[in-house]
């Protein structure tokens, strides 16, 4: 527990204006950062002394009522230190652009494509931002809250 506070507080100390919030709800260490600081903070977290060498997961949560609609959520894992951390940032609907992490982690390429496909969040610097699960010609982003659950877009004419 002593050490856990260290990561959060040292991040706060290192990036004073960029770390907006830090806490551990339900025991998951979480920091909320400014979007512009993402590449610097992620690059630092990947190195010693933090050693979060694995990008576990990347996803987006859609809050249509908030001014900054899309919350991008990263989960990192440090195998040598056996700990996880969650990094969150919010971007508005008018400019849903986040810096790409493809330079740091290789699986970021697919993860960012998924986030783009499902939510329409764009990743600046991504080499190949294309739909991954849905097909070309599909309109809209299905996991957004305003996309209807049963709004189907068939690829071929269906019988009946």
């Amino acid at each position: 527990m002593e050490e856990e506070k260290d990561v959060l507080s040292s991040l706060r100390a290192a990036y004073p204006g960029d770390v907006l919030e830090a806490g551990a709800p339900f025991g998951d260490e979480t920091i909320v950062i400014r979007p512009a600081a993402l590449p610097a903070i992620m690059a630092a977290l990947r190195q010693s002394p933090y050693e979060f060498t694995m990008l576990l997961d990347l996803t987006v949560v859609d809050y249509p009522d908030r001014p900054e609609r899309f919350e991008v959520v990263y989960h990192l894992l440090s195998i040598p230190r056996n700990r996880r951390i969650r990094i969150k940032l919010s971007v508005p609907e008018s400019a849903p652009v986040v810096a790409s992490l493809t330079g740091l982690w290789k699986n970021a390429e697919w993860l960012e494509r998924e986030a783009f496909d499902m939510f329409g969040v764009r990743f600046e610097g991504h080499p190949y931002l294309r739909r991954i699960f849905m097909y070309d010609g599909f309109e809209g982003h299905p996991l957004r809250k305003d996309y209807g659950l049963r709004h189907r877009q068939p690829r071929i004419p269906l019988r009946k």
């Binding site: 849905m134 299905p142 996309y147 209807g148 659950l149 049963r150 709004h151 189907r152 877009q153 068939p154 071929i156 269906l158 019988r159 009946k160």
Partner: peptide
């Protein structure tokens, strides 16, 4: 799976 992604029965194809 009654949702946007799934064909509701292959007899539609």
């Amino acid at each position: 799976y009654d949702n946007y992604a799934v064909v509701q029965g292959i007899d539609q194809i």
